[in-house]
Amino acid sequence: MPASELAATATLRKDTWWLEPLLIVLGLGGFVVYTTWAALQGAHYEYQNYLSPFYSPTLTPSWWPWSPAILILWGPAGFRLTCYYYRKAYYRSFWWSPPACAVRDAHGAYTGETGFPLILQNIHRYFFYVATAFLIFLWYDAIYAFIFDGRFGIGLGSIIMVVNVALLSMYSFSCHSCRHLCGGCLDKFSSSPLRYRLWRMVTTQNESHMLWAWLSLVSVALTDVYIRLLSMGIIRDARFF
């Protein structure tokens, strides 16, 4: 066996290295399919004081003939698409570059993020700014979900919406770009104690960025499902107060 043949072996791994990419394809792929379907519906996205996060803020200009979600979803979608965690997830699982560690890359040539279009991943921090603006609307929606006919109340939908926006906030503010902007760009923390404290707080959450990414992905889809089912009359909202 020539040594070059050893080098050409796809992998010598014996464990289930394919399981993680498979689960990510199912999870992320399922989310993308559902979100696309839900965004194209243009209906059943609100119920009383509840508004689906896929449609917030709801922009309905008279010249726009399609679903209002299409006008806004580029923001959060761009944030997730350029996110450092999701890049790892989809480069590995969808693009097989590489599918797992010490498993051969599926492509003959590789240039990474050096050229167009992947060089555009560098605009991630701008999508972070956009995502932060979206959070303001989502927090407003979550608070509004506690007001039933002008009076304070608590429904299962209120709780779902507030949990969802809390998870989305944790995902956004544990972002690597946020960590850099808060203080990671500094060489001397001692000269900016406030930014140092902020950087440490973000760093703590940044260690769980993958967890927040998945939890918020699931919660945002479930929130839409819940409001959609209410709006379609399939289920009834549980009121606690």
């Binding site: 450092y84 890049r87 790892k88 480069y91 590995r92 570059s97 590489p98 560690c101 010490a102 590789y110 240039t111 990474g112 993020e113 050096t114 992947l118 060089i119």
Partner: peptide, 15 residues
């Protein structure tokens, strides 16, 4: 150093 070649798939961290 070709930093942009890295597509942050984290194998370096894993090993």
């Amino acid at each position: 150093a070709g930093l942009a070649f890295c597509n942050i798939t984290k194998c370096c961290t894993e090993v």
